[in-house]
């Protein structure tokens, strides 16, 4: 059985098989809660293509007015850091990198 969705070319992996849900690729969902804020990772959905993934994300993650904008990206397009290298990546013992050694004039107030 061939999978052919012309309007979403390239978005379906033709090697998918199995049941309906098992056959849909995974998408990571990012929601912007309101104008001016960043899109924040909210979770993931299964969907056959990007447009359907946005609809699914709307239904699953913005039911209670959580957002004003949705991004989706194929989970396979996320490249993550290696947890085993966390020590090398995230050595936090460098307090001099925090701007805590500057005197901030009182007139500036909170920065």
């Amino acid at each position: 059985m061939s999978y052919h969705v012309p309007r979403a070319e390239g978005e379906i992996d033709p090697t998918f098989s199995g049941g309906a849900t098992g056959g849909y690729p995974l998408w990571e969902v990012f929601i912007r809660a309101k104008r001016g804020l960043n899109h924040v990772h909210a979770g993931s959905v299964h969907a056959p293509d990007a447009e359907t993934a946005v609809l699914a994300a709307r239904d699953v993650y913005t039911r209670r007015s959580e957002g004003v904008s949705i991004w989706v990206v194929r989970s396979t397009h996320i490249h993550a850091s290696d947890p085993d290298e966390a020590d090398a990546f995230f050595d936090s013992d460098k307090p001099y990198r925090h701007p805590t050694f500057y005197e901030i004039p009182e007139e500036v107030g909170h920065m």
């Binding site: 309906a20 849900t21 849909y24 959905v45 299964h46 969907a47 609809l55 699914a56 239904d59 699953v60 039911r63």
Partner: peptide, 12 residues
């Protein structure tokens, strides 16, 4: 529905 996403969709 065919997937849980659309179970939520029809509930909406």
């Amino acid at each position: 529905m065919p997937d849980v996403e659309d179970d939520v969709a029809v509930a909406n």
